[in-house]
Design a protein around this nucleic acid. Structure first.
Length: 193
DNA sequence: CATAGGATCGCCT
DNA sequence: GGCGATCCTATGT
C-alpha cells in the first residue's frame, strides 16, 4: 500500500497518467477518519494547448496558479457553487497539466462515506461522479486545495490492482462543449467492472 | 462595483 | 429529459 511517488506525477504525458490512475486508490484522512476508493474514472487536461483546460492559452489567475506549480499537488475548485472537484497536478513547474478524478469505488471507511452522502444508492454508485466522490471522501475546496499528495491528508496509493485494458472505455470528456474541437479528444477513461 | 457563467447533481415531470 | 441550486472566479466598467 505505497503512496505513488513524485516520479509518477512528474511526467510529461498527462493522458498516460490519467490512464494509469485507473485502478489506483484515492485516500483521505479527515477528522482522523481514513476513507479510500479505487479510481474508476479520470480525465486528462493538457494545459496551455487544451481549450478545455482552465489554463488554456497560459492563463494564470489566482485559481489556475496551482496548476503552474509543482506536480503531485491537489487542485480542488468549486464548480456550480456546489461541488468540489478534485484534480492532481502533473508535469514539471510552469507546465499546467492536471488529471480530474471523476469516479471511485469505496473500499475503506465505507460507513463514513455512506453517511456523508446520505444516499440510498448501492455502494458502487455513491461516488461515481466528481462532485459525489469529493463529498464521500470529505474533500472541500477551501480545505483541500494545494495540498501535497505525499503528505497525509490526501494521497493516492498503488494496491497493485490489475486493470484489464479491454474494460476501460476511452472517449471524449464530459461537460466541455465550450472547448470546440478539443471537446472531442479521447482524454476520458472509464473502468467498467 | 456588477455581472455572467461554470470540468455537476438530484429532484421533478 | 429538464431545471434550479449556489457561490466563487474572472472580467469589464
Amino acid at each position: 500500500m505505497k503512496k505513488l511517488p513524485i516520479s509518477f506525477y512528474d511526467r510529461e504525458d498527462v493522458v498516460l497518467i490519467a490512464q494509469e490512475l485507473i485502478g489506483k486508490v484515492l485516500c483521505t484522512k479527515v477528522n482522523d477518519v481514513i476513507t479510500k476508493g479505487i479510481i474508476t474514472e479520470t480525465e486528462a487536461y493538457a494545459g496551455v494547448l487544451d481549450k478545455a483546460s482552465h489554463a488554456f492559452g497560459g492563463k494564470r489567475t489566482g485559481r489556475t496558479e496551482i496548476m503552474f506549480g509543482k506536480p503531485g499537488i491537489s487542485y480542488v475548485y468549486l464548480c456550480y457553487g456546489v461541488h468540489s472537484l478534485f484534480n492532481v497536478v502533473t508535469n514539471k513547474e510552469n507546465i499546467p497539466h492536471a488529471v480530474l478524478i471523476r469516479g471511485i469505488h469505496p473500499i475503506e471507511g465505507v460507513e463514513t462515506m455512506l453517511s456523508r452522502r446520505k444516499s440510498k444508492e448501492p455502494l458502487y454508485k455513491i461516488a461515481d461522479g466528481p462532485g459525489k466522490l469529493s463529498k464521500a471522501l470529505g474533500i472541500e475546496f477551501r480545505q483541500h486545495n494545494n495540498l501535497d499528495l505525499l503528505e497525509d491528508e490526501i494521497w493516492i496509493e498503488d494496491h497493485s490492482i490489475s486493470v484489464n485494458p479491454k474494460e476501460v472505455l476511452i472517449g471524449p470528456r464530459i461537460g466541455v462543449g465550450y472547448a470546440g474541437e478539443d471537446a472531442l479528444l479521447p482524454y476520458r477513461f472509464l473502468w467498467n467492472r
